[in-house]
Amino acid sequence: MASTLKGNSGREYIKNAILRQYPKAPEFNIHRASCGGSLFVVKRVSESFFHLSKELEEEFRESKRLRIYIDCNKAEHTLIYDHYKNTLLGLLEKYPNFPPIEIKKILRYTGNAIKELYEKDWIYIVALGDFNLALKLVDQQPLRAPQAVGNAIWRSPEGQSGKGIAKPSDIFSFGLVCIYSLGGGPILILDNEIIQGLKDNGMPDVLYKSASEITDAEAVDDPDARFERWSRDIAPHLDSDAKKMILQMVNLDPLKRATIQEILHSSWW
């Protein structure tokens, strides 16, 4: 049976489908809803994230690049967003021949959105469309968390360990998004069992170190496995300028990663 939520604006949203289900905490299920012939996403969040989202909305209310909620219900700590049919990942899966020039425009737009956040010391931690993962840095100090932070596919090494999360962590994740978008998706996407394991347990430092050693050893046996040697057979839209830019984004040392300003000034654009 459909239920109705009334926003602070006075509009009533009729929930008609569950977009994401949380069996252990069904009150946080994410719903699709309709109002006035349009579709919306209705998302209940914790009290702390609700207040954080309010702060974000106040700072970026006029933004044309960031996905800010358009209504809310304060009493129920619920946010209402415009409904989009696809994520970037879903779009490229559905349209594998999506024009490369349009992919570049989307990535450029994303880079400018990240720059807009950084100018006010916010970080988005992997998912620009999900500001449950947005945090504001205090005095530019890196953040620490008791567990892995962010989507398992796009996490930086710091996100996996929950230690030292800062602007360079976002840059690493953006680099992975670029690799995926330019045709390297099949190499990046993990199977559901591995993703669930990372969600439940994170990636222990010893496992991360072992993974690095394994990949280094494999690259000795097969030099073409190194990212800088990838051909267009692996990632069809990945040219030399794109590889140069991405290599600066995914350096394992956060202090050596490119800044968002350096990325936006890359010759690839």
Rank of each mutant, 00 (worst) to 15 (best):
G175P: 00
V126Y: 10
T110I: 14
E55S: 11
V41C: 01
R67Y: 04
P168D: 06
G36M: 09
E218I: 10
M245R: 01
L264M: 04
D121F: 08
E62M: 13
L137F: 03
P146M: 01
L247P: 01
S181Y: 08
A225D: 13
S240P: 06
G37P: 03
C178G: 04
S173E: 01
I214W: 05
A75H: 11
Q160W: 01
P100I: 01
T215S: 12
F60P: 00
D233I: 04
P204N: 07
R257Q: 05
A145H: 10
S173F: 00
S156M: 02
A258S: 10
E116H: 08
S3C: 06
L88V: 09
R61F: 15
Q261H: 14
Y180Q: 10
L137V: 13
T87N: 12
D205A: 09
E58F: 15
K74F: 10
K244N: 05
I18A: 05
I260V: 12
Y22V: 01
Y13E: 03
K243P: 04
L188K: 07
A225V: 10
L19C: 05
K199I: 02
D253Y: 06
V250P: 00
V45Q: 02
L89P: 11
P186S: 07
K167A: 07
S46V: 08
G10L: 03
D233T: 12
L117S: 14
K136T: 08
T110W: 12
K244R: 07
A134M: 04
T259G: 01
R232Q: 04
Q21F: 02
S212Y: 03
E27N: 03
N112Y: 07
S3P: 00
Q147K: 09
Y81C: 11
H83E: 03
